[in-house]
Design a protein around this nucleic acid. Structure first.
Lengths: 227, 227
DNA sequence: CGGGGGCTTGAGGCCACTCAACGATAGTGG
DNA sequence: CCACTATCGTTGAGTGGCCTCAAGCCCCCG
């Protein structure tokens, strides 16, 4: 049996760890790829967790709905990220495709069956959960960030780390998504981004407002004052 | 070898899972009990994680300091809770005794050594991490809660779940601790508690303001509107 | 009894939210 | 190709809630 999830430890000290699945071509766990249209639900909260997903194209948002209609986004899953692994067997978040997204599916049960016999695999499942935990812990620090500017700066730095493609950030998500991730309103997010633009910290590329180049990463980090 | 961490699944649907260590008397992993005075640091952020701790008396706060002196508390560890298990081998938070606290220490390495050979133990370490993750995910929903009243209500409900002793909540932590946990100021927390008191939702017991009886749990939950 | 820590309460200011209007872009169909 | 529309983003004005600063109270402990 050859199933291994290996950690990519090359990232910066406090950055997220992303996992790569070496066995993605293994027919026993791999169930092929599926493409979800923009806004399509992948699974709902409290549904049984049958599959584990690897993002090969696009982006996914993971959120909970409050009774009054507010939405709290807990995480964005980007290309290369694995999500959907729930130890309890039940999903705790609803997930949707942010844009047109391709996912590689794996049977959760198969993975666990392997983990049962292979301690190394089991350790790597732990590593995956730890990675999620670390992200959640980082996100937990968010309420400590006072101003909207700090929060948006922290968000941009996170995205810069995770989907940097040659100095340019191509945000797949809308201002509303960002707002629901940060606990702000979309107007406040927009104002913060505008402010960073006027301050010369970032630049818009192209016609859309989702392609951003960060000009002064150091200043952004100082605004964030994470750590 | 007989080391098992068993999950306590008797709690309510969305509540925290607490873990009990069946092998606490095992001399190989158990290194005895230590008592920490109020305010004493147990370990610092970025220190190597040598031990895993079980709270047998008191309470522990786990926090990070921002560069401008602000403090974000990520979790409170109460009697029966296990903390200090860091997969990376380095602590990501600083921990302090909130009040005089007794901890049972275990060598992290011993636990991992056992886990290496015993898949069941390995699974339970995963379970512990999952439990932490679940708490972090719940706490991540906090920024989505708009008002200070909602946040304080959510906090009281959490504490009610975790340290209920015959209908009375004995909070070990100060208003400042609560504030740093919720991302509010201590004055705002105080005002929110006062408001709940005036509304007849809770009652103070004794001379201190840390002994609280919740009179209308249903109303509290409606204020929280978690889920 | 004085001191200090913890908690409450009040007054005022600022920042994020709310409501609203407008502009830009992309997709649709005539 | 050009309306037409819908979605997304920006910007403005006004309000309200949380923070800040401050004073005072209570309880514990020396």
């Amino acid at each position: 049996m050859f199933v291994r999830i290996t950690t990519d430890q090359t990232s910066r000290p406090n950055s997220l760890k992303h996992f790569r699945l070496a066995s993605s071509s293994n027919p026993i766990v791999n169930l092929g790829e599926y493409t979800y249209k923009k806004g399509k639900e992948i699974y709902g909260e409290k549904e049984p967790a049958k599959y584990v997903y690897l993002v090969t194209r696009g982006a996914v948002r993971s959120y909970k709905l409050l009774s009054d209609g507010r939405r709290q986004i807990g995480a964005f899953h980007l290309v290369g990220d694995i999500f959907g692994l729930e130890n309890g067997g039940t999903h705790r978040f609803t997930t949707e495709a942010v844009v047109e997204t391709t996912l590689r599916l794996m049977k959760r049960q198969s993975l666990e069956l392997v983990a049962e016999k292979d301690t190394l695999v089991s350790r790597d499942l732990l590593g995956l959960t730890t990675s999620n935990l670390q992200h959640a812990e980082d996100h937990m620090l968010l309420p400590g960030r006072k101003t909207s500017l700090e929060k948006v700066a922290a968000f941009l730095l996170e995205m810069d780390e995770r989907l940097t493609a040659a100095g340019k950030i191509s945000l797949p998500m809308s201002r509303r998504d960002i707002a629901d991730y940060l606990g702000l309103t979309l107007e406040t997010v927009s104002r913060a981004v505008s402010q960073l633009h006027k301050a010369g910290i970032l630049e818009f590329i192209g016609s859309t407002q989702r392609e951003i180049a960060i000009l002064d990463r150091g200043l952004l980090a100082r605004i964030d004052l994470h750590n």
